[in-house]
Design a protein around this nucleic acid. Structure first.
Lengths: 222, 222
DNA sequence: CGAGAGAGTTAGTCTGCCCTAACTCATGTT
DNA sequence: AACATGAGTTAGGGCAGACTAACTCTCTCG
């Protein structure tokens, strides 16, 4: 039942389409190609196979959409990825900048049962080490509408909710600033002409390059 | 450095050749084919590739032999497999009859670092749940010369050292008899004409089909 | 409105790994 | 010693998934 129903490639495409679907512009073939590091032609080829398998819907020259089945596969994969990341950090002492790469490989070979056991062993976490919500085994996900840090109003306080997880350099930098999910900050504003953002975290003032501030997401402080 | 240097297929072939090399008759192409569930022709094809990559030595119509490099790859894989099995049992509550299948997949995607962390987390085990020795990270393995249970002398006492790990049914049966590595038994003999073997384990007398007794290995009691 | 630019697709090729069918080699039996 | 048998190999295909090159569609902008 948990047999390898889909190839690693198919799973990767479905996950890419799932993740791009919830960004502005949706999942375009060239977006998928860029995300997976393959040519646009390869995406066209794979999309045909996915459509034939009933995992994706596609009208030529339109955005790609997952079917219910395709979405379910993608959500399982996302769950496996995020649980594995959380487990590596909590149970095996990994740092948060090194788990993504390992999880990218393990997510395709770990059974759902293993992932469920990992989740149980660390107390059924609801978010991964970068703050991303973990889908339930049943395939339900919270999809919180966080704001980018750069969208805060001057003087506003907020809590760091989630950061992008794919860039290890970024994660090490954010970690060194203590800018991790759960941290409380106050936004002090942006320098003129698209300069750095300034925030207060604990008793320290920190400056963030504009490109970083769009990759860190915050929630209301309650 | 721990990048995926070899395909899953290549790793599987090397492991099969390694394991068959230490049985009587060595690693023949048809032995490898049977073990991996592929045709003999597929083995011939893969052997050409492995020879070209310098992982295997092969004279036509002779047994296959690993080169130093091939052996190193195989030992890494065996280490990953056995550490994963041990970890699943000790850290995640798996039963010993369900770990082989999971480890067969994870061994190809878990990094050496992950495996080393798993090993450390459970106290650097030296054998897996079925009693098979775990190679060190450096690639050294103990290769103990155990006897099959069926080779014991009547009345002899011995310790269960290792059992075959690939047949879940077998493992469940042995588990129900408490015939697990570390258990102490006394061999009471075999029924005439190739019948069942009888052993004493704890205060109970158990009977083992001849085919089972050749798949359970014992060491001297000290 | 018409033309690029760029996105998407099709065509054709390659590699990895599997298969079946058919041939060759090695070996034991009579 | 010849031959049957089975092990090993070669030949020829197939499928998955990637690529480049070339064609087509869409959309924006002058």
């Amino acid at each position: 039942m948990t047999a390898a129903e889909f190839t690693t490639s198919v799973e990767d495409y479905l996950k890419a389409i799932y993740e791009l679907s919830q960004t502005v512009g949706g999942a375009t073939p060239s977006g998928v190609a860029a995300r997976l590091g393959v040519s646009r032609a390869s995406v066209s080829g794979m999309v045909h196979r996915l459509v034939k398998q009933g995992l994706v819907k596609h009208e030529p020259y339109q955005a790609l959409r997952l079917t219910g089945g395709g979405r379910a596969v993608a959500l399982q994969l996302v769950r496996r990825h995020r649980v594995i990341e959380a487990y590596l950090v909590k149970a095996l002492g990994y740092s948060w900048d090194r788990v993504h790469e390992e999880a990218e490989r393990l997510e395709h070979t770990a059974s759902n049962e293993l992932v469920d056991r990992m989740a149980a062993a660390i107390g059924e976490p609801t978010v991964d080490p970068h703050g991303a919500p973990i889908p339930t085994a049943g395939g339900a996900v919270a999809e919180p509408a966080y704001r980018a840090l750069s969208e805060l109003a001057v003087g506003e306080k907020a809590r760091i909710a989630q950061v992008e997880d794919e860039d290890a350099e970024l994660l090490r930098h954010l970690g060194s600033l203590r800018l991790v999910p759960g941290a409380t900050i106050r936004y002090l504003g942006q320098e003129p002409f698209g300069g750095s953002h300034t925030i207060r975290i604990g008793s320290r003032t920190r400056r963030l390059a504009p490109s970083l501030a769009g990759r860190v997401f915050v929630s209301e402080l309650k």
